[in-house]
Amino acid sequence: MKSAVIVFPGTNRERDMRTALKRVTGRDPLMLFHREELPKDLDLVVLAGGFSYGDYLRCGAMAAQSPIMRDVKDFAAKGGHILGVCNGFQILIEAGLLPGGLLRNASLRFLSMDCHMRVERAGTAFTSRWQKGAIFRAPMAHGDGNYFADDATLDRLEGEGLVAFRYTDENGTVTEAANRNGSARNIAGILSPNLRICGLMPHPEDLVDPLMGGTDGLPMFESLADAFVAA
């Protein structure tokens, strides 16, 4: 698997992402600064977490306009696989590659804690190592993760099986208490219609080694490695 992690000014989780990708593929992803060009032969582009451009205007809004995002949009248009985590999810939304918006957390508090998610859509390049309904833990750390979309969009996402992950309690039950940031219908992560773009707020890349306290997030990266096993 040939992957690249995009680094904007203010991105700060790119090395966590590198660790996770290297663990499953044995090779380092390219680390590309926002002014560089995207190579043509990539399997996967990752937008990592952080506070790109200081979260000016709206989280992800500035990064979405940066030069490399033109290449990322072309990559998406050609059917490339893209993973966006946390600020990366916000950037995908601001770039129009995923629908909806991410509002300030309903509590107004920055949330830095573990959460549990249920896998709502298995069998994708991001989720094939999980069964539908599997529950896993992941750290989250964000101030603006409150997923919003109008009802028609939410119905479409649900109807087409494009909700990837939902916040639940540790038993997999959808509860209001488990939905710490106030997201619509407990949505933690979504997929594009072609299932090749995935964005989520929590950080699976931060639980990929027993030394980190668990390997709950590892299946996402193993799924990606499986998807590009020949590459």
Binding site: L103, R104, N105, A106, S107, L108, F148, G182
Partner: peptide
């Protein structure tokens, strides 16, 4: 402005 119908936690606070 936040759209009508969109939760505005900042305004609430």
């Amino acid at each position: 402005m936040p759209k009508a119908g969109v939760l505005d936690p900042q305004g609430k606070a």
